[in-house]
Design a protein around this nucleic acid. Sequence first.
DNA 1: TTGAATTTTCAATAAAAATTGAAAATAATA
DNA 2: TATTATTTTCAATTTTTATTGAAAATTCAA
Lengths: 171, 171
Amino acid sequence: MQLNEAKSRFIEGWGTLGSAWGVSRTMAQVHALLLIAPEALSADDIMEQLQISRGNVNLNVRALMDWGIVRKELRPGERREFFSAEKDIHKVATLILKERRKRELEPLMRVLGEISHVDSSADSSQEELNAFTTMVDSIEKFAGFADRAASTLIKADENWFLSNFMKLMRP
Amino acid sequence: MQLNEAKSRFIEGWGTLGSAWGVSRTMAQVHALLLIAPEALSADDIMEQLQISRGNVNLNVRALMDWGIVRKELRPGERREFFSAEKDIHKVATLILKERRKRELEPLMRVLGEISHVDSSADSSQEELNAFTTMVDSIEKFAGFADRAASTLIKADENWFLSNFMKLMRP
DNA sequence: TTGAATTTTCAATAAAAATTGAAAATAATA
DNA sequence: TATTATTTTCAATTTTTATTGAAAATTCAA
C-alpha cells in the first residue's frame, strides 16, 4: 500500500472511532493527522491536508489542546504557530482518561449524590421508591469504583501500568 | 427531594452522560427510565413519561435490545409488549463493554493491520514513513492490550472482578 | 507607532442526526 | 376469514451540531 493511501485510511479510521466516543469526527482527524506527522504542522498545513476551513482548524486544535494531547510549538523567526501531538500513546490514553473523568464521572457522581436522598413521603409507592434508590445506590457504588480505577491509572506511571496491569490482564 | 424530581434528574443526567459517550440522548433516557422502573413498561408508558413519539420509542428500545441491556417481556393475556432493563449494573457494564469492543475495537484493529504494511518506495520521505509506521505500530500494541483487557473483563465473573480488580485498584 | 501576517471570533449556512406521524405490516382473537 | 390491537417502517420535518468565511482582534517587526 502507498503511504498516502495508508495515511488517509488512518485518518478516516481515527475519525470514525472518535465519532463513536462522542468526539467530533474532524477533531479526531486533526488529531490523527498530527499523530503521524513527523513534524509540527501549521494551520495552513492542516487546512490543506484535511480540506477544512481556517476557523475549523482553529476550533479543533484548541479543543485538542484543552484535552492536553496537542501542543503549540513556536519557532524562532516564524510568526506562524505550529501544532504537534503527544506521540506517546500511553500518555495520550492517560490524558484522555483524566479529562473524561473530570468532565463526565464527576458530574455524574454529583447528580447521584444529590438525588440519593428522597423523601419517603406522599404519593409515590414504596415499590417505586425502592426501585429508584436501589438503582441509584448501585450506580453510585459502581461509579465510585470506576473513579478509583481511573485515579489509580492516572497516577500510575507507565512501568507500573505495564508490569502490574498487563500481568493481571494476560490470562 | 421528591421522588419525581429525583427521577427526572436521573433521566436527564443519564442522557447527558450518554451523549458524551456517543449514545443518543433519548436512547440513554429510555434506558434510565427502565433502569429505575420497578416493573416492565409498555411503549405507551415510555411515550408518556418521556414525551416522545411511538416511532422514537420503538427505535430506541430496539437499539437497547441490540446492546443486550433491555429485554422484551411478554405477559400472558396481554397483547402489548413490555420492556425491562437489566438491573445488575455490573452486567450492564460488561454487556456494553462487549458490544463496544465488537463495534469499535475490532474495526480499528482491522484497519491498523491493513495499513501497517506500507511500500517503502517512491515519493515519500523516510522520515514520513517512519513516523507513520512507528505510530501505527504503537497504537496497534495499545489496542491489542485494550482488547485483551476487555476480553478478560468480559469473561470474568463478578466475583473475580470484585476480588481481584478492586484489590488492585484500592491504593 | 504603523502595517502586514496571523489568529480568533461568530453570525450565517450547511450538513448530519434525531424525531415525528401516519401508512403499512404484523399478530392475535373471535 | 375479518376485525382490531399493536408494532414497525420510513419519507418528511425539525432540531442539533458542525462548518464556513470574512471581519475583528492580536501579534510581531520595522
